[in-house]
C-alpha cells in the first residue's frame, strides 16, 4: 500500500479546536491524514508530547494555539512558543527535519485558516516523506 502520512495536530480547546469544528460546519475540506488531539491550552503541550508522537509513528506534529492576547490562561501560548522554539532547536540538532514540527495560532473563527494550514502541512510532509524516527520508542 502506498504511504500515507500520519499527522498529529495538538489543538487548544478554546481556539484551534473550535477552528477545526468551524471548518467542519462550513464544509471546508482538509486532508484525512490529520488526527486531532485536544488540549486545554497550548501551554499544556510538553516537548515530550511532540517527541513521543514522532517516535511512535507520526510523520508530522502541528500545534495550534490562541493568538497572543487571546489565551484563556493568559500566558499559556507565550510559554508554548518558548518551549516549542527551544525544542525545535534541539530536535533539529539531533536530526529531526524542522518542517516536521510546526506551531501556529488559529482562532475559533478561523475555520478557513485551519483547513488551509492542514492542507499545507499535509503537502509539506508528503514532500519530506515518511518520518525516519518511527519506531524509535522503547
Amino acid at each position: 500500500m502506498a504511504w500515507e502520512p500520519r499527522l498529529i495536530v495538538i489543538a487548544c480547546h478554546w481556539c484551534t479546536y473550535a477552528g477545526a469544528d468551524l471548518a467542519g460546519s462550513l464544509r471546508y475540506s482538509y486532508p484525512p491524514t490529520v488526527h486531532i488531539v485536544r488540549v486545554p491550552c497550548s501551554g499544556r503541550v510538553e516537548p515530550e508530547f511532540i517527541a513521543e508522537a514522532l517516535i511512535r509513528g507520526a510523520d508530522g506534529v502541528f500545534i495550534g494555539g490562541c493568538h497572543f492576547g487571546d489565551c484563556h490562561y493568559k500566558e499559556g501560548n507565550y510559554k508554548a512558543i518558548r518551549r516549542f522554539n527551544l525544542f525545535k532547536r534541539v530536535a533539529t540538532e539531533l536530526g529531526v527535519e524542522p518542517d516536521r514540527i510546526q506551531l501556529e495560532w488559529i482562532s475559533g473563527s478561523e475555520g478557513k485558516k485551519f483547513a488551509e494550514s492542514m492542507t499545507a502541512f499535509d503537502a509539506k510532509i508528503r514532500e519530506l516523506g515518511p518520518n525516519p524516527l518511527k519506531g524509535g520508542a522503547q
Binding site: E46, P47, E48, A51, R82, R83, L86, F87
Partner: peptide
C-alpha cells in the same frame, strides 16, 4: 525534554 520545558 523536561529541562527544555522548565528552562523555556
Amino acid at each position: 525534554l523536561r529541562a527544555i520545558s522548565a528552562i523555556a
